[in-house]
Protein backbone atom coordinates (compact mmCIF):
# COMPACT_ATOMS: atom_id res chain seq x y z
CA UNK A 1 0.00 0.00 0.00
CA UNK A 2 2.79 2.45 0.91
CA UNK A 3 4.58 1.82 -2.38
CA UNK A 4 1.46 2.13 -4.47
CA UNK A 5 0.29 5.32 -2.77
CA UNK A 6 3.75 6.85 -3.21
CA UNK A 7 3.62 5.86 -6.88
CA UNK A 8 0.13 7.33 -7.31
CA UNK A 9 1.15 10.57 -5.61
CA UNK A 10 4.35 10.86 -7.61
CA UNK A 11 2.33 10.38 -10.76
CA UNK A 12 -0.04 13.13 -9.72
CA UNK A 13 2.52 15.49 -8.21
CA UNK A 14 2.58 16.37 -4.53
CA UNK A 15 0.03 19.14 -4.51
CA UNK A 16 -1.31 18.94 -0.96
CA UNK A 17 -4.16 21.36 -1.53
CA UNK A 18 -5.48 19.28 -4.38
CA UNK A 19 -8.92 17.75 -4.32
CA UNK A 20 -8.18 14.08 -4.76
CA UNK A 21 -10.80 11.43 -5.35
CA UNK A 22 -10.04 7.72 -4.92
CA UNK A 23 -11.57 4.42 -6.06
CA UNK A 24 -10.45 0.97 -4.89
CA UNK A 25 -13.12 -1.17 -6.51
CA UNK A 26 -13.43 0.39 -9.93
CA UNK A 27 -14.57 -1.76 -12.84
CA UNK A 28 -12.73 -2.53 -16.07
CA UNK A 29 -13.94 -5.23 -18.40
CA UNK A 30 -13.23 -6.32 -21.92
CA UNK A 31 -15.25 -8.10 -24.53
CA UNK A 32 -14.15 -9.95 -27.64
CA UNK A 33 -16.67 -11.02 -30.22
CA UNK A 34 -16.09 -13.33 -33.20
CA UNK A 35 -18.46 -15.66 -35.02
CA UNK A 36 -16.65 -18.55 -33.28
CA UNK A 37 -16.71 -17.33 -29.72
CA UNK A 38 -17.56 -14.52 -27.30
CA UNK A 39 -15.06 -13.82 -24.54
CA UNK A 40 -15.78 -11.59 -21.56
CA UNK A 41 -13.67 -10.72 -18.53
CA UNK A 42 -14.33 -8.42 -15.55
CA UNK A 43 -11.99 -6.76 -13.06
CA UNK A 44 -13.73 -5.14 -10.11
CA UNK A 45 -10.54 -4.18 -8.23
CA UNK A 46 -9.28 -1.25 -10.28
CA UNK A 47 -7.51 1.41 -8.18
CA UNK A 48 -7.75 4.97 -9.44
CA UNK A 49 -7.09 8.52 -8.30
CA UNK A 50 -8.58 11.61 -9.91
CA UNK A 51 -7.25 15.06 -9.04
CA UNK A 52 -10.05 17.52 -9.80
CA UNK A 53 -7.75 20.55 -9.38
CA UNK A 54 -5.65 19.75 -12.47
CA UNK A 55 -7.51 16.86 -14.18
CA UNK A 56 -4.76 14.29 -13.65
CA UNK A 57 -5.99 10.74 -13.52
CA UNK A 58 -4.27 7.40 -12.80
CA UNK A 59 -5.59 3.85 -13.14
CA UNK A 60 -3.87 0.73 -11.79
CA UNK A 61 -5.05 -2.85 -12.10
CA UNK A 62 -3.78 -6.36 -11.49
CA UNK A 63 -4.06 -8.59 -14.54
CA UNK A 64 -4.79 -11.57 -12.29
CA UNK A 65 -7.87 -9.77 -10.96
CA UNK A 66 -9.69 -10.30 -14.28
CA UNK A 67 -12.40 -12.91 -13.87
CA UNK A 68 -13.47 -15.18 -16.74
CA UNK A 69 -16.38 -17.60 -16.46
CA UNK A 70 -14.24 -20.39 -17.87
CA UNK A 71 -11.26 -21.31 -15.68
CA UNK A 72 -9.13 -22.40 -18.65
CA UNK A 73 -9.62 -19.04 -20.41
CA UNK A 74 -8.47 -17.21 -17.28
CA UNK A 75 -5.41 -19.47 -17.13
CA UNK A 76 -4.57 -18.86 -20.81
CA UNK A 77 -5.09 -15.10 -20.40
CA UNK A 78 -2.64 -14.98 -17.47
CA UNK A 79 -0.09 -17.51 -18.73
CA UNK A 80 -0.03 -17.18 -22.53
CA UNK A 81 -1.28 -13.70 -23.38
CA UNK A 82 -0.85 -11.19 -20.52
CA UNK A 83 2.06 -13.12 -18.96
CA UNK A 84 0.82 -11.89 -15.58
CA UNK A 85 3.77 -13.27 -13.59
CA UNK A 86 6.14 -11.12 -15.66
CA UNK A 87 3.80 -8.13 -16.13
CA UNK A 88 1.45 -8.18 -13.11
CA UNK A 89 -0.06 -4.70 -13.57
CA UNK A 90 -1.69 -2.64 -16.31
CA UNK A 91 -1.69 1.13 -15.83
CA UNK A 92 -2.91 4.36 -17.37
CA UNK A 93 -1.58 7.79 -16.40
CA UNK A 94 -3.04 10.85 -18.04
CA UNK A 95 -4.99 14.05 -17.88
CA UNK A 96 -8.45 15.35 -18.75
CA UNK A 97 -7.71 17.77 -21.59
CA UNK A 98 -10.99 19.72 -21.38
CA UNK A 99 -11.16 20.11 -17.60
CA UNK A 100 -12.71 23.58 -17.83
CA UNK A 101 -15.88 21.99 -19.31
CA UNK A 102 -16.51 20.16 -16.01
CA UNK A 103 -18.13 21.90 -13.05
CA UNK A 104 -17.31 19.72 -10.03
CA UNK A 105 -19.72 21.76 -7.90
CA UNK A 106 -22.73 21.07 -10.10
CA UNK A 107 -24.15 17.52 -10.35
CA UNK A 108 -24.50 16.33 -13.94
CA UNK A 109 -22.87 14.34 -16.74
CA UNK A 110 -19.92 15.96 -18.52
CA UNK A 111 -18.19 14.76 -21.69
CA UNK A 112 -14.43 14.57 -21.30
CA UNK A 113 -11.37 13.69 -23.36
CA UNK A 114 -8.56 11.86 -21.57
CA UNK A 115 -5.01 11.78 -22.93
CA UNK A 116 -2.09 9.90 -21.51
CA UNK A 117 -0.01 6.76 -21.55
CA UNK A 118 -1.32 3.21 -21.37
CA UNK A 119 1.07 0.56 -20.09
CA UNK A 120 0.18 -3.07 -20.63
CA UNK A 121 2.22 -6.24 -21.12
CA UNK A 122 5.40 -4.18 -20.71
CA UNK A 123 4.51 -1.90 -23.66
CA UNK A 124 3.77 1.81 -23.17
CA UNK A 125 1.71 3.69 -25.75
CA UNK A 126 0.11 7.10 -26.12
CA UNK A 127 -3.61 6.78 -25.60
CA UNK A 128 -6.61 9.08 -25.99
CA UNK A 129 -10.28 8.36 -25.43
CA UNK A 130 -13.60 10.11 -24.93
CA UNK A 131 -15.58 9.40 -21.80
CA UNK A 132 -17.95 10.92 -19.26
CA UNK A 133 -17.64 12.22 -15.73
CA UNK A 134 -20.81 12.20 -13.69
CA UNK A 135 -20.66 14.53 -10.72
CA UNK A 136 -22.88 13.13 -7.97
CA UNK A 137 -23.70 14.30 -4.46
CA UNK A 138 -21.41 11.71 -2.84
CA UNK A 139 -18.72 11.26 -5.49
CA UNK A 140 -17.80 11.14 -9.16
CA UNK A 141 -18.42 8.34 -11.70
CA UNK A 142 -16.04 8.03 -14.65
CA UNK A 143 -17.09 5.96 -17.67
CA UNK A 144 -15.41 5.18 -20.97
CA UNK A 145 -15.66 2.61 -23.77
CA UNK A 146 -12.81 2.18 -26.23
CA UNK A 147 -11.16 -0.40 -28.49
CA UNK A 148 -7.80 -2.05 -27.71
CA UNK A 149 -5.77 -4.19 -30.11
CA UNK A 150 -3.76 -6.87 -28.28
CA UNK A 151 -1.11 -6.76 -31.06
CA UNK A 152 -0.44 -3.07 -30.25
CA UNK A 153 0.81 -4.20 -26.84
CA UNK A 154 2.97 -7.05 -28.10
CA UNK A 155 0.40 -9.71 -27.23
CA UNK A 156 0.74 -12.39 -29.91
CA UNK A 157 -2.30 -14.51 -30.68
CA UNK A 158 -1.37 -17.84 -32.30
CA UNK A 159 -2.98 -18.74 -35.63
CA UNK A 160 -4.79 -21.72 -34.17
CA UNK A 161 -7.03 -19.52 -31.97
CA UNK A 162 -6.97 -16.44 -34.24
CA UNK A 163 -10.59 -17.11 -35.32
CA UNK A 164 -11.76 -17.16 -31.71
CA UNK A 165 -10.15 -13.97 -30.44
CA UNK A 166 -11.14 -10.63 -31.99
CA UNK A 167 -8.31 -8.47 -33.32
CA UNK A 168 -9.93 -5.58 -31.48
CA UNK A 169 -11.37 -5.87 -27.96
CA UNK A 170 -13.99 -3.52 -26.54
CA UNK A 171 -12.97 -2.21 -23.13
CA UNK A 172 -15.46 -0.78 -20.64
CA UNK A 173 -14.37 1.31 -17.68
CA UNK A 174 -16.75 2.35 -14.91
CA UNK A 175 -15.23 3.77 -11.74
CA UNK A 176 -16.92 5.46 -8.80
CA UNK A 177 -14.71 7.82 -6.82
CA UNK A 178 -15.14 9.17 -3.32
CA UNK A 179 -13.26 12.09 -1.79
CA UNK A 180 -9.96 10.97 -0.31
CA UNK A 181 -10.07 11.69 3.41
CA UNK A 182 -6.53 12.68 4.20
Amino acid sequence: MKNILILLFLALGLNLNAQKFIAKNGFAGFYSHTSMEDIKADNNQVNSILDTSNGEIVFLMLNKSFHFDRALMEEHFNENYMESEKFPKSTFKGRISNLSDVNFNKPGVYKVTVEGKMNMHGVEKDFTTEGTLEVQADGIVAKATFPIKPEDYGIAIPGIVRDKIASEMTVNVNVKYTLMNR
Binding site: M1, I4, Q45, N47, M61, L62, K64
Partner: peptide, 14 residues
Protein backbone atom coordinates in the same frame (compact mmCIF):
# COMPACT_ATOMS: atom_id res chain seq x y z
CA UNK B 1 -9.71 -16.75 -2.52
CA UNK B 2 -6.90 -16.93 -5.07
CA UNK B 3 -4.13 -14.41 -4.50
CA UNK B 4 -3.77 -12.00 -7.43
CA UNK B 5 -1.34 -9.32 -6.19
CA UNK B 6 -1.22 -6.03 -4.31
CA UNK B 7 -2.17 -2.46 -5.19
CA UNK B 8 -3.47 -0.30 -2.32
CA UNK B 9 -4.90 -3.47 -0.77
CA UNK B 10 -3.87 -7.10 -1.10
CA UNK B 11 -6.18 -8.55 -3.80
CA UNK B 12 -7.93 -11.94 -3.86
CA UNK B 13 -10.01 -13.17 -6.81
CA UNK B 14 -12.67 -15.89 -7.29
Amino acid sequence: GEFSGMLIDVALNN
